[in-house]
Write a protein that binds this DNA or RNA. Structure first.
Lengths: 342, 342
DNA sequence: TTGAAAGCGCTAACAG
DNA sequence: CTGTTAGCGCTTTCAA
């Protein structure tokens, strides 16, 4: 069994209360005693039980983070940033992977709520009601998701998001200026709030500029899905492809390369997120830059300051690289098509 | 405040002991009572406190996992696999990122030891003594690391590793058969046990086959480092490059492509690990396949069975793809060089 | 400045 | 079958 404070107290010849005070740096204990206790504790390799402390103080020193898929680099870098910032206050981090399953996510929320001080829900697949309920148990930070307008936001619920509007507007404007008129969008997960945001922005801008938009659903927003989508791509239907994220765009790039379709000569490709190290994509990928690290930083700030309701938003902007160029003159121009989705 | 078992007991008109028994599925409760308690608990949205339960039972239902760098996909997929397997038993997962810092790692070990049942140390940068000390506090699973021969292994310490020997032997043999005689190796982190293993295997095989080996140290085993190393590569010194992992190899590939150096025409490249989705690398990367997912599965098995000391090892094998080919005849053959390291 | 005692929420003997 | 009681390790009043 591990050393307890009781053993420390006995070895130091003081009461448990005094030992506790000495160890927690209370000023209500004389220096000599304090020193002795601290020394004894070190000698005994004493580590205070977080469980016991948590039970009495009501705070555990842990924060919980839940993802839909921990394999996705978007969440990994989010987590890395959050960890760096929060870890400095020596708080522990409890993680949970919902595997995109709302039921499992809610089970995780309940399980965690008894052992963490605050909860970070990334791209939550829960309903607004469930999220509000969770916020009733403990302070919650919603990341990459916002409650619907009209839902009353509980006091201890913070929301940090990525504002895709500017970036997507630039992306489509950029394509339009290059002469593109038909765009295919590879959409994100069905339950994803951010996917909905991106889709809405896209539909709006394409409508304004008069671009024909084809929306294609994919299974998971990863490289393999992009590869599959890129392989079956109808190059007659569009001269440009925009992907939900960089992983998917990378897959598209690989597929087109394998098919011998030139990028950006025959078709232009745009990604989203900054998850890719510079030089990985070939050709270099034009992308809507939106840092999940920055989102992690925002979440960390909200976590560390749970009393004040926080709202934050990460800006996006277009980074133009090699994968976009002028649209080729259409060989067999078709009649105008209406927007469709799958 | 959250609902406690006491409130459930009162509302159901039973003692808290009975409530506890009913909720934990004990058979020593009559069905009617049990039903009533369970129903009341559900109505009150009761969630048992893991802290309180842990304090009395001595088991928390959590496992701790510590990494040197959670950003590295090697650990991400390790974690994903571990999580799937362990999560099924609804155990929680507490993570810690040591940032390659042994002091921080040991602090994490201590902090975690009071709130998890078992600890998984991946690629630990601790000393053997520290690891043995940790195993004295709680069952430990060492992943991607093994204690030095001669160190007595404590009863509750399991060790799971990747056996790089076969894979690296094949890799060098493969290069040798293609006519390569000069090989550059991009080495892994200084404190890494697995890097030492790979280096040792390489030195041995190169010695046996008579290949000239140049070992180059890199900072972090990631894409950027590979890019840097690839850019400054001395193509006179070697006709083949072997990288510590696929991330680094990918960087080398990108650098050579940018420099207009043909792969595998001018130089062959080999990676390590299976962290890359198929089709990502261009040209397709010949690699020493070693699954970190498989390592995660081994770790999960050891975690779930802590009483029996476990030892496991993931096999490796060479997967030949496009990035390796015959060595070009040397234009300016130099005199034989001896092995060196940097 | 220190100690005694209460109690955080829960489980596990031990009686009844 | 159920209730009473005694803690798990710690912090925090309240007295001394």
């Amino acid at each position: 069994m591990a050393t307890t404070i009781r053993q420390v107290a006995e070895a130091a010849g003081v009461s448990i209360a005094t030992a506790s005070r000495a160890l927690s740096g209370s000023d209500a204990v004389v220096a000599a005693t304090k020193d002795r206790v601290v020394r004894v504790a070190a000698a005994l390799d004493y580590t205070p039980s977080r469980l016991a402390r948590g039970l009495v103080t009501g705070t555990t020193g842990n924060i919980g983070v839940i993802f839909p898929d921990i394999t996705n680099p978007f969440y990994t870098s989010f987590l890395a940033e959050l960890e760096s910032l929060v870890g400095a206050y020596d708080m522990g981090i409890v993680i949970g992977d919902s595997h995109e399953n709302p039921d499992r996510e809610y089970a995780l929320v309940r399980q965690m709520s008894t052992q963490v001080d605050r909860l970070v829900l990334t791209s939550s697949r829960l309903t607004d009601e469930q999220i509000v309920a969770a916020a009733g148990r403990l302070p919650v930070v919603l990341a990459n998701r916002r409650l619907d307008v009209g839902v009353v936001v509980p006091p201890r619920l913070s929301q940090v998001v990525i504002d895709v509007d500017a970036g997507f507007t630039s992306a489509v404007t950029h394509l339009h200026a290059l002469g593109h008129r038909r765009l295919t969008y590879l959409d994100g997960p069905v339950r994803s709030w951010s996917a909905r945001q991106k889709r809405a922005a896209l539909i709006r801008v394409c409508g304004e500029l008069g671009l024909n938009l084809t929306i294609v659903g994919i299974e998971r927003p990863d490289f393999a899905a992009g590869l599959a989508a890129g392989t079956g791509l109808d190059t007659d239907r569009a001269t440009a492809v925009l992907a939900f994220n960089d992983q998917v765009a990378l897959g598209v790039l690989a597929a087109l390369r394998a098919c011998g379709i030139d990028v950006p000569g025959r078709i232009s490709v745009i990604g989203c997120d900054d998850s890719l190290p510079d030089g990985l994509a070939w050709p270099a990928l034009t992308t809507v830059d939106s840092s999940s690290r920055a989102l992690g930083a925002l979440a960390a700030a909200a976590v560390l300051n749970p009393e004040t309701h926080q709202t934050g938003s990460v800006p996006t902007r277009l980074i133009v690289r090699r994968s976009t160029a002028s649209a080729v003159p259409s060989f067999n121009p078709r009649e105008e098509q209406t927007q469709e989705s799958s």
